[in-house]
């Protein structure tokens, strides 16, 4: 018979999670070998701003075609991933939480692609 202690899974998880956030508190960020004098959140903010500018430039300067649309979509995905990883702490949180985004997104996209694939029927 298993000996059952009073702890629950949550207590164990909480224990595990305890010592994972450490980089967040530092005032410096190491990016590609160079040290930047700002917390990681600010560096990410900079990247988000730069990507947004990049998107704006593409959108304003070039006509919409397969390539530019693709670039815009990729840029937005990178931005979203940055926010999720750093601001929402998924980087050092439980990978299970990633499933909570990815699975519904996958299911939502199945639905979305389906809607895309079906020509407007005109019924």
């Amino acid at each position: 018979m298993t000996d059952m202690s009073t702890t629950t899974q949550a207590e164990e998880l909480a224990q595990e999670a305890h010592d994972s956030h450490s980089a967040d508190h530092s005032d410096k960020t190491v990016l590609f070998g160079t040290t930047i004098n700002a917390p990681v959140y600010t560096v990410v903010f900079g990247a988000l701003g730069a990507l947004t500018l990049f998107e704006l430039l593409i959108a304003e300067l070039f006509p919409r075609n397969f390539l530019t649309t693709g670039l815009l979509v990729i840029a937005s995905i990178i931005k979203a991933v940055l926010v999720v990883l750093f601001y929402m702490h998924l980087k050092d949180d439980n990978p299970l939480y990633a499933l909570a985004l990815v699975v519904p997104l996958g299911i939502g996209l199945i639905a979305a692609f389906f809607l895309l694939a079906v020509p407007v029927t005109g019924y």
Partner: peptide, 9 residues
Amino acid sequence: IRNMRPAGM
């Protein structure tokens, strides 16, 4: 179900 299970289960 994920968090309240006793640790042995």
